[in-house]
Write a protein that binds this DNA or RNA. Structure first.
Lengths: 228, 228
DNA sequence: CGAGGGATTGATACGTCTCAAAGCATGTGG
DNA sequence: CCACATGCTTTGAGACGTATCAATCCCTCG
């Protein structure tokens, strides 16, 4: 229903079996029977309510999952970087939508394909990815239930820095692919609090923003101390 | 390390293949190759840091998972009722401990057993349980990120009432198997706020507590409206 | 250059935490 | 059977943090 609101700038390439960038067995399992998808930035990968038939693995770029809540607000479920798998759904429909934050390359496998029961490798890969998703969600719950805005943002920035897409430059010039609203909806805060807290962290010299979408972490240990 | 602090009142019965109370294929898959465990109330099923080798399915009773956070606080990961599966771990160790809240009967399967790859049924059952755990965690995150104390407690009480262990009495006399501290650590609140908010809900005639561990929901719709 | 959206900053209200004390159960020993 | 200790729960007063409403700033794009 919400599909292709953003213009549907999507290209599709079937059964690409190359594209295994020094990857392990798991990546290969995905690659062997998957479909490769390419998206520009700000494109919809699937919408809330779409039938959930596939699992998706990020090869390049960053993906955001989100859902609109009953009260009209938006909740961001997570940000997925290269190597991460998303699209897990308990039921037949996607409870979350998925959108690309930047140019993306994504591998998709049919979650219910007959290959799943037959191919032990793929089955194991899926279960392992599900375990990582559970871990991510557990950490997210822990963050929301016991951390202040300062702590949440410190933890969030460190997480982004760790998983920064690509550039191996030290810890200066880390790219922030999401907006303040995305961050707020992910951390359960308002964009005003996010903005205020970030400037406060900068005043304390714990982070330094060159632009609003690019930052550095001068003193990692000090920031880690805040994230408790 | 923390094991058996509570006295280790645990009995073990191997390979019980009966005990399929009108259950479906999934339960059977568990039962066929599982181990049955029995615990009294307030017993440790496994400790934080214990090797994670099994998955557990609640047959009778209620189980709580929890972990101590770096700042010394306690975080309750979830409450598991009959039919629920817990024990999913991304790594080799349990990040959460599991304790019985009441007398429990639990089915355990070796998650990494050779049967997993061979037995398609068990593999599917595990993956489906993982999906349900992901859904539960997603809902938990959603609750923590956008609801007030009132909304969290309303949603929590409705959840407990829906999954109430046993008694098919209407919606009066629902048993609350966990303490105020458990609820607080699960909802990311303090016990004072939990207590205050519960009395406030009672003053508004949205719930009625007969004792501190037993309540009813007179007007389900009104309570549901609060939980947004 | 102007329009638009994202980001920042400000003032105030509200909700939750904190510290503190009292109430209420349960179980134990006299 | 009662007195008492212990832990859980409830209630109170105040401080703190975040949301809200509103205005301004900034950058990007047309």
């Amino acid at each position: 229903m919400l599909s292709h609101l953003t213009g549907g700038r999507m290209r599709l390439v079937h059964n690409v079996t190359a594209e295994s960038p020094g990857a392990a067995r798991l990546a290969l399992a995905f690659t062997d029977c998957g479909v490769r998808l390419c998206f520009d930035g700000d494109s919809e990968i699937y919408a809330q309510g779409d039938p959930a038939e596939r699992l998706y693995k990020v090869v390049r770029g960053v993906v955001r999952t989100s859902r609109v809540t009953c009260d009209g607000g938006r909740h961001v479920g997570g940000f997925y970087y290269p190597g991460d798998t998303f699209g897990f759904e308990p039921g037949p429909e996607h409870r979350f939508a998925a959108e690309s934050l930047s140019g993306c390359e994504i591998l998709a496998v049919r979650a219910a394909s007959p290959a799943r029961s037959a191919d032990g490798d793929l089955g194991r890969a899926i279960l392992q990815a599900a375990h990582r998703e559970i871990e991510r969600l557990q950490d997210h719950v822990g963050m929301l239930s016991r951390m202040s805005a300062r702590g949440r943002l410190a933890a969030f920035l460190m997480d982004v820095a760790r998983r920064r897409s690509g550039e191996p430059s030290g810890l200066r010039h880390v790219d922030l692919p999401m907006s303040r609203r995305d961050i707020a909806d992910y951390l359960g805060l308002t964009i005003e609090t996010v903005s205020r807290t970030l400037t406060q962290l900068q005043e304390d010299a714990l982070v330094s923003f060159h632009t609003s979408r690019r930052f550095g972490i001068p003193r990692w240990a000090a920031l880690a101390a805040i994230a408790a």
